[in-house]
Simulated assay, not measured.
Amino acid sequence: MKKEILDIQNLSQAKKELSQIKAEEISIDIMAPKAVFRVVKLFDVHPAAANIIKQEMLAIGGEAAVARGCVNMSVEKSDVIIMGTLRQYQRLLAKLKMQKGYFGLNEVVEELKSVIEEMSR
């Protein structure tokens, strides 16, 4: 037995790797978005928006790190580090679109759209 650590950069590469091991064809579309993992840093996010991002990512099995002062709104802005799979980013985007009129989430939605586009190639 050998091992190889894969660095999957996008959806097409994930599908290719899954196809090469002869995964069930119908399963490839389900599994591939889970194989593309990204860490994204957003800068100068409103603390309420940062809290929403963190809560939504945790709810879908991802992670987000925010400044300590976001919890009690003692900071004006926070950088946010989001960690998740393509599938989690897709789910996060869907949830944020429903709230995008608040706390600068419009900008977050637009930034995440570009991240998802890059991951989906």
Rank of each mutant, 00 (worst) to 15 (best):
E24M: 09
H46R: 09
E56V: 08
F103W: 14
A59M: 11
K16V: 05
R121V: 14
Y89G: 00
I60E: 04
I53S: 09
E17I: 11
I116R: 01
H46Q: 14
E117N: 14
N72K: 11
A59R: 13
M31R: 12
M73A: 12
V75S: 02
V109P: 02
K97H: 02
E107S: 15
D44N: 15
S12F: 08
K95A: 13
A23D: 05
S19P: 00
I30C: 01
Q90I: 04
K16D: 11
L58K: 11
F37W: 12
L18Q: 06
D7I: 02
L58Y: 10
A32N: 04
F37P: 00
A32F: 00
I82F: 04
S78D: 03
I53W: 06
V108N: 02
K34C: 12
A49Y: 10
M98K: 15
V39Q: 11
I26K: 13
K100N: 09
D79H: 02
A23T: 14
S27T: 08
E56S: 10
V36R: 01
L105H: 05
L112H: 06
K113L: 12
K16G: 02
Q90T: 01
L105A: 06
S19R: 14
V36E: 05
I28W: 05
I60R: 10
K34L: 15
S114W: 13
G62P: 00
L112P: 08
Y89R: 03
G62V: 00
M119N: 03
D29Y: 06
V66G: 01
Y102C: 11
S78V: 01
S74E: 10
L112T: 06
K41I: 11
L11G: 03
I8A: 02
S114Y: 14
F103Q: 07
K3R: 13
A14L: 04
A35F: 15
V45F: 12
A50V: 09
R91Q: 09
V71Y: 13
Y89E: 06
K15M: 07
E110R: 11
R121G: 13
K54I: 06
L92F: 00
E117W: 07
Q9N: 08
F37G: 05
M119T: 05
G61I: 09
E17D: 09
R68N: 11
G104C: 02
I30T: 05
L11S: 03
A59F: 06
M119Q: 06
R121Q: 15
K77D: 04
A23K: 15
I21P: 10
K41W: 03
D79F: 00
L18S: 06
E24W: 10
I82E: 08
A50Y: 07
R68Q: 13
G101W: 00
A48F: 15
V39W: 01
H46G: 07
I60H: 08
K77C: 06
R121Y: 12
F43I: 15
L92W: 01
E56N: 07
N106W: 05
K113T: 11
M31C: 10
Y102I: 14
T85Q: 03
A94Q: 09
E107T: 15
K54T: 06
V108I: 09
L86S: 05
I53Q: 08
A49M: 10
G69S: 04
Q13W: 01
G101P: 04
D44L: 10
E110T: 07
Y89H: 06
G104W: 03
M83V: 07
S12T: 07
K2I: 11
I81C: 07
G69P: 04
K41L: 07
N72T: 08
F103A: 13
Q88H: 00
